[in-house]
Every structure is written in C-alpha cells, then in structure tokens.
Amino acid sequence: MTAELTLAEATHLAHAVAARAMATEDIRVLFVKGPVAVSQGLRTGGLSSDVDILCDPARVRDAVDLVHEYGWTRYSGEQTDAMAIGMHATAFTIPGWPPTIDLHANFPGMLADPQSAFERLWAAHRIVRLAHHNIPAPAPADHFVILALHALRTLAPGEQTVAMAPLKTAWASLGKR
C-alpha cells in the first residue's frame, strides 16, 4: 500500500533517494543539516522538512538536468525560504513526497571559491547511515562550520540567543567546549 508518510520518515527516505539518484551519474554530493547533522550529534532531533545537498559545483548543471529528467519538479511553494534558496540553490520536490530537496552550489559565507570549498569538504567527507543507506556528509567539524554559517546568515535582531543555542550543542559534541 502507498504510505501516508510522516515528515521524519519522508525526510530520511528522501535522503536515500537523492543520494542514489546522484550516484547513478557519479555526481558528488554532500548532505548537510537536518537528520545528517542529528546523526553526527551536531543537532538534536528536531523535525526537518527538507533535504539539503551541497553539490560538486562542476556538476550542478548535470544534477539539475538529471532531476528534471527524472520528473522531479521545481519547487516554488510559499514556504520556500527565499533567503536560504536565493541564487545559490535550487529546490525540487519528488512528486507526492513532502520534503523539498534543496540543491546548493555553495553556501553563503564560504569565502573560498565554491569548487575549492567543495573539494576541501569532499576530501574529509564521512558516511552516515540514513534509511539503511550510505549518505555522504561533511566531516563533523566541517559540518559545524556549515551549520554556523547557516545560523549566522539568518540572524535577526533579538534572535542571537536562539540561533546560538543549537551551535553550542554542536560545538559541545565536537569536544571543543
């Protein structure tokens, strides 16, 4: 029977779907934030509604073409975080699936050129297991930096304490308290 998915189930499975889809064309990708960060102890287990993928900048066009070929649809819903998506990422949905899949070419705040930054992250990448599949992810220390950049980017007046709390948790998990 077709399942009514909980968001947690769907998000975990969608990581595996996206990882396998990109692997079919040998497109290097790293999965960041969300359940990957939880798996690495960098976040506590809050609900995540999307799959964040940092793609090899040299293959972003191939990745976009691939997901179009598969029939995934460009996401333009009202819940799209324009600041998060902006010019550096493209959001897709798999028809019938609740999570959005955000394909990032880079992350704002990385000062190295995107290809160099990706190569550095890829060289140290790790595998986490989600939905009983291998999911490539940045090394925990690198992942912390990505989480920090994301948190700092979205800071607004009065939100500093809220934004810093998860980072403190992540920092503590790295044993660098």
Partner: peptide, 26 residues
C-alpha cells in the same frame, strides 16, 4: 536498492531506482 525506516510499529520502504519517483510502501 531498498531504503527503509522503522518507527514505532511500522516500516516504510521505497525501492531506489530511476526515475526515483516511486512512492513509499508502508
């Protein structure tokens, strides 16, 4: 080729194959 999660008393699974648009099975 099967991705699956087990939460509470149910398993949700999906077969990973192009075009990767299959809906999960519970």
């Amino acid at each position: 080729s099967v991705a699956w999660v087990h939460h509470d008393d149910r398993v949700v699974l999906v077969k990973l194959a192009p075009p990767f648009t299959a809906l999960p099975t519970r």
